[in-house]
């Protein structure tokens, strides 16, 4: 035994010498600083800290993969909860981009009195062209409008059977590009007061309505996302609670040999992180599958309208955001669960 002792002593000689020096110091300070004198320095401690992060991350992942069915269920629940609001947002994005295709310069159409003379119309056109808030004014006579309608609508025969031209002459105005929406509506009001003008139509009106609907949808998606994030928090919180319960002995022993709360917490935080991360990735997969399924029919529908519109996915940034927010929610859920339940477990 003497020989063994010598050998082990010589192996740890420098640290042991440090330890006895440190412990020989009298005074209360030594208790708190006690652990430090056993160590070689902050660099080692940093390395040890990193090593524990690594091993916590690895171990919690391995534990998860050791119960694949159970983990997959948790991942799926999280994925569905994340995919729902994400899908809604992607749909809104697509509708918005669809709207933007007709969202060029706003146009105002003036429908004129059908009995207005050509001279009066030309006079009005000149007056409008001289205004600052109007860029261009194009005149479409009733006859031109009829011709255009015949070729565009394919209802030429029906129109030809009419005795008179039912279409009014029109002026197409393009307001100055820097005109504010409020100024535009004021412009519309003043135009409506012109004697020749029967009606004023803003081409933008339906797009503005669409934007309002989209805004409503976006708020709905955010509210839904918030609710479902709460659901994810609860699911992860419950999963972590079970995992804490099942590792009660280990927690007790770690606390007995001087493990800090942060040390005990770490593996569970990684567990939450992995659940959230896996859920986020799975949500991405679900969303991509859904878009893949829809992209064929949507392309066909767009084709029938002579449009080259294609469904857009989340994109790289959006996908990253989805995965990161999944991981974040997972981590947060674990933090809440650990904060609630770890304090209950103390060595008895």
């Amino acid at each position: 035994m003497q020989r063994t002792q010598k050998r082990s002593n010589s192996r740890v000689a420098p640290a042991a010498a440090g330890a006895s020096r440190g412990a020989a110091k009298p005074g209360g300070k030594n208790v708190r600083g006690g652990a430090k004198v056993y160590k070689t320095g902050w660099k080692d401690r940093w390395q040890g800290y990193l090593a524990h992060h690594q091993s916590s991350a690895r171990d919690s992942l391995q534990r998860m993969l050791a119960a694949p069915v159970q983990s997959l269920m948790t991942w799926l629940v999280i994925a569905v909860a994340l995919a729902l609001p994400a899908t809604l947002l992607v749909c809104l994005d697509n509708i918005q981009s669809l709207g933007q295709r007709w969202d060029g310069a706003p146009q105002i159409t003036l429908f004129l009195n059908p009995r207005a003379t050509e001279r009066a119309i030309a006079d009005l056109q000149r007056r409008l062209e001289s205004r600052d808030d109007i860029d261009t004014v194009a005149y479409v006579s009733a006859a031109d409008a009829l011709k255009e309608f015949e070729t565009e609508s394919g209802m030429g025969n029906a129109l030809r059977s009419l005795d008179t031209n039912p279409l009014p002459p029109t002026l197409l105005l393009t307001p100055s590009t820097d005109a504010a929406p409020a100024a535009l509506s004021a412009l519309g009001d003043s135009l409506g007061q012109q004697g020749l003008v029967d009606d004023v139509v803003f081409d933008r009106a339906w797009i503005e309505r669409l934007h309002q609907i989209l805004e409503l949808g976006e708020q709905l998606a955010i509210a839904l996302g918030g609710l479902l994030a709460l659901g994810v928090l609860l699911v992860i919180g419950n999963t972590i609670r079970l995992s804490i319960e099942s590792r009660r002995d280990e927690i007790v022993i770690v606390k007995l040999v001087g493990g800090t709360d942060a040390f005990v917490r770490r593996p569970f935080l990684y567990t939450g992180l992995w659940y959230g991360l896996g859920g986020g990735v799975l949500a991405m997969v679900l969303l991509s599958l859904l878009l893949l399924l829809l992209s064929g029919p949507v392309a066909m529908l767009a084709d029938s309208y002579q449009s080259d519109f294609h469904l857009q996915g989340l994109g790289f940034g959006g996908g990253l955001l989805l995965i990161v927010s999944g991981a974040l929610v997972g981590w947060l859920g674990a933090w809440l669960a650990v904060g609630r339940h770890l304090g209950d477990i103390e060595p008895q």
């Binding site: 063994t4 002792q5 050998r7 082990s8 002593n9 192996r11 740890v12 640290a15 652990a35 056993y38 160590k39 070689t40 080692d44 401690r45 390395q47 040890g48 800290y49 090593a51 524990h52 091993s55 022993i253 770690v254 040999v257 001087g258 493990g259 800090t260 040390f263």
Partner: peptide
């Protein structure tokens, strides 16, 4: 375990664990 908790670097921890087990 106590060395991991205190944040020993793995090489130093290995020496100490083997010394203790040897003892």
């Amino acid at each position: 375990l106590p060395l991991v908790i205190e944040g020993y670097n793995p090489a130093e921890a290995g020496r100490r664990v083997r010394a203790a087990l040897d003892k």
